[in-house]
Design a protein around this nucleic acid. Structure first.
Lengths: 359, 359
DNA sequence: TTGAAAGCGCTAACAC
DNA sequence: GTGTTAGCGCTTTCAA
């Protein structure tokens, strides 16, 4: 029975030390599994710690060692500007659990970094010394200035977006530029000249990548760029319909790339109908993007582009874990190529479970 | 342009103070929105803070104030002893997000508190001064000694289980004792004397509650308790089948309560078949428990007992939020009654989406 | 309205 | 193998 009278869980290393007539540093050594303590003394200290339910104060530790505790999860953009569903967040958490769950880590979500008393930006968990590492889940605004600071700070992180201003960022992404390039080329090779593109992620880097790939393919083919052939969608089915309607109502448009990421074939169809057009080889030739392999957003599509986003994110998180635990070193750079799936028309594939959608 | 040369995000209040020729305390006052600082000085301090990207060190703050930062989420029992799916955890997180997300809180998951360097029990996040409040997600072992300490510590929490040793606990639960009592009475009133019960949560309080309710109903009716009529299931469909088989193979058994929580009608049917019995009014009369309203685990059942667990958990989390933000005071005690749904046999209701299952 | 000093619990650096 | 000292960044107490 300890002489010192303190409730379980309220002991400090000083209490432990005093109780046993040793120094706090010795207790600290035992706590941190460092050597320099005799076997028998170590044993006694451990026993007392267990008996009184000692747990270290993580704040004090982090203050001294400058090492924080949690694996952070944070999102650069709110749901108002990206069709990120809550399911996306939950999916990310599942992946993080797979990578860290068995190791007894704390996983700390900063779901709304711009609200509350300690409001800041999506990186506040790092500066507030809560996160020892960080998963930045979501696309980055093209004018983001925060990632530069995170990167230069040396904090371990992985981000699911590239950013022009930080080309060396630790990212895990799909190459959207290439996806747009290949989608456009595919249609050019089939004789199309006026190719419309339904786009999303305006103002965000993935949106910019789409535009670049599209423009590059046009340029190579000597087709002038017409900005009216690009239309951004918002969150809703209605906006996919409206965007498709707007694009396909234009003179001479014969093909459409759905790079909205909404995976919403029904709305594409409806938008085409409102423009008095039909999707399909005989009407508007369609290339639709999807986050799942061997899935058909729209059976009328001539090709689907599979964006292995889940796969790249999963690998990025695993690589982050490897770095945290010293199993690997160096930058993280996962860039998965898109896969253009050019199945015969009419082949029936299942519809993808949509990844982004409005709640 | 500040005179002090420090990277953004690495400033302390002392740096801010020195830069402006004031004391750290003054800066601290501004940081914490306390008065005692002139309007103009306050303004200058705030401007500099924004300029250098100042963020407080949460560990240092918590060390001094003994106030922690995160809303914790932790689970008393691992998936090995309870058919808790990862989806359950994700569902909880969704609820917590609904309650706290807009407020800019950090939500910290301790998914595997027994692993890792700072291994402890499910409450370690509290003792380590990481959690200012805590959602304890899952049933408690009957011999749990931890909740008592949490409760007495004054930490705000809500737990999704009752516990005999802490009757005053802040819980949000369904009254399983009553569910078992009403299920049993229902069958007694229909003339049954040998009523079998498929049970889960052995060793956990909800399991004990089931047993008590069952025994109370028998006792009132003067029917002796036969322990062979109770069988615990494990995680798998196979164990539901085996348990049902075991129970229904016994002499004279005419009724079954499925209180396993597995919502697995197919396995009940298969278990009955293996025992050479049929479920239904002409065979083995069944009362099946479900976590969803107006759902039929098994169309052969004479009644379904709806356990509004989702609803109670949601309310418990909301009440916790109310207490954290001072909108309400006092203990949390959400005890939802079960609802016995006694629909005519043959009425077709949808099958519930199972809540607990093996990954 | 503002500041100086002390100390929260821990561990790095250094001494013995 | 063990102890002493100092200090991480913050806020409380007390003083001016």
């Amino acid at each position: 029975m300890p002489k010192i009278d303190k409730p379980r869980g309220e002991w400090t290393i000083h209490d432990i030390a005093r109780e046993l007539g040793v120094s706090a540093k010795t207790v600290s050594r035992v706590l941190n599994h460092k050597d320099g303590v005799g076997a028998e003394l170590r044993e006694r200290i451990q026993r007392l710690m267990a008996e009184v339910g000692y747990q270290p104060h993580l704040g004090a530790r982090s203050l001294r060692t400058r090492i924080s505790t949690c694996i952070g999860v944070t999102m650069p953009v709110g749901p108002e500007s990206v069709p990120l569903s809550q399911h996306f967040v939950l999916w990310i958490i599942e992946q993080i659990y797979a990578a860290f769950g068995r190791l007894g880590e704390y996983v700390c979500l900063d779901l709304n970094p711009r609200a509350g008393v300690d409001a800041g930006d999506y990186s506040r968990g790092i500066w507030q010394h809560l996160f020892k590492a960080c998963v930045i889940a979501g696309p980055l605004p093209v004018d983001d200035r925060i990632l530069r600071r995170i990167h230069d700070s040396g904090t371990r992180y992985v981000v699911f977006s590239r950013l022009d201003s930080v080309p060396e960022a630790n990212c895990a992404v799909v190459d959207y530029e290439r996806a747009a390039y290949e989608s456009t080329r595919f249609l050019i090779e089939r004789g199309h000249r006026r190719i419309a593109m339904l786009r999303s992620f305006e103002g965000l880097n993935p949106g910019l990548e789409r535009l670049r790939g599209y423009q590059r393919a046009l340029k190579e083919a000597g087709i002038p760029f017409d900005e009216r052939l690009i239309r951004s969608t918002g969150l809703s089915a209605e906006s996919v319909i409206a965007g498709t309607h707007f694009l396909l109502a234009q003179e001479g448009v014969t093909a459409l790339i759905d790079s909205s990421g909404m995976e919403d074939g029904e709305s594409l169809r409806e938008g085409a109908a409102r423009a008095g057009k039909r999707l399909g080889r005989e009407g508007i030739e369609l290339v639709a993007w999807s986050y799942q392999k061997d899935m058909a957003v729209c059976t009328e599509a001539s090709a689907h582009v599979w964006l292995p986003m889940r796969e790249s994110a999963r690998e990025g998180i695993m690589m982050l874990a490897d770095r945290i635990y010293g199993r690997a070193e160096g930058p993280i750079r996962v860039v998965y190529p898109p896969v253009l799936q050019d199945y015969p028309i009419g082949q029936l594939l299942p519809t993808p479970k949509r990844f982004f959608y409005q709640e």
